[in-house]
Design a protein around this nucleic acid. Sequence first.
DNA 1: TGCGATACATACTTTTTGGTTAGTATTTGA
DNA 2: TCAAATACTAACCAAAAAGTATGTATCGCA
Lengths: 114, 114
Amino acid sequence: MPDFIFKGKVYYNPVQLVMEQIGGVWKMPILWRLQYHTMRYGELRNDIPHISDKMLTTQLRELEEDGYVHRQVYAVVPPKTEYSLTEKGREVIPLITQIREYGNQLIEKENKKL
Amino acid sequence: MPDFIFKGKVYYNPVQLVMEQIGGVWKMPILWRLQYHTMRYGELRNDIPHISDKMLTTQLRELEEDGYVHRQVYAVVPPKTEYSLTEKGREVIPLITQIREYGNQLIEKENKKL
DNA sequence: TGCGATACATACTTTTTGGTTAGTATTTGA
DNA sequence: TCAAATACTAACCAAAAAGTATGTATCGCA
């Protein structure tokens, strides 16, 4: 499997690309919460424990840039912004489901040991 | 989904745990290559483009520590070490397969646009 | 005698990622 | 009149991940 270029950047393997698009601590938890309905910024913020404004904003921007989420801004006061999954975002949910399941398996097995 | 503790460290969600165990640029490519047979250090090194000694060694040690690979050292000169998947390592291969497939899909779609 | 092969280790630096704190504009409600 | 809510931005800092370069012991081989 040779190197390839995706959006101007060199990657060594397909896994590396996936990790950049949806890896890290926060992106999958965000996508996961958007799977059934649109959510406002503040709803995501309240629903995801420990996430900071900076992380939520930067991760949402990257997900938008990479085509996973759609951002709808309403010009009202106080401001209102809604986030929802795009087609690409919906397509990646099954993969996230599997990753979560595997994570839960690990936790279960660990707990059995106690 | 509340916080939990796994091997003494606090995690915020199952995805974060999975990312720590098999995330990053190199761990999945290593596991992937070990799926069918044992490999020597040098074979892995030659087979994984761009990986450095440092990365290969540290990632193998972490995978061993987390129970994904087994390390068999032969006390000969020149040294010989063989790496193979454990049961836990074999169990994670289907997940890696899916992640790779998704990555390949992304690449295909990108290429169609050209 | 000096080189290459083997499977690393060590030290150092750079890059990326994530966290903390504070600040912004505007309106509603107390 | 002052605080709270909203959806952010900016500046700064710490930690983690990754990259680079060099060194190590031992042997066979030229």
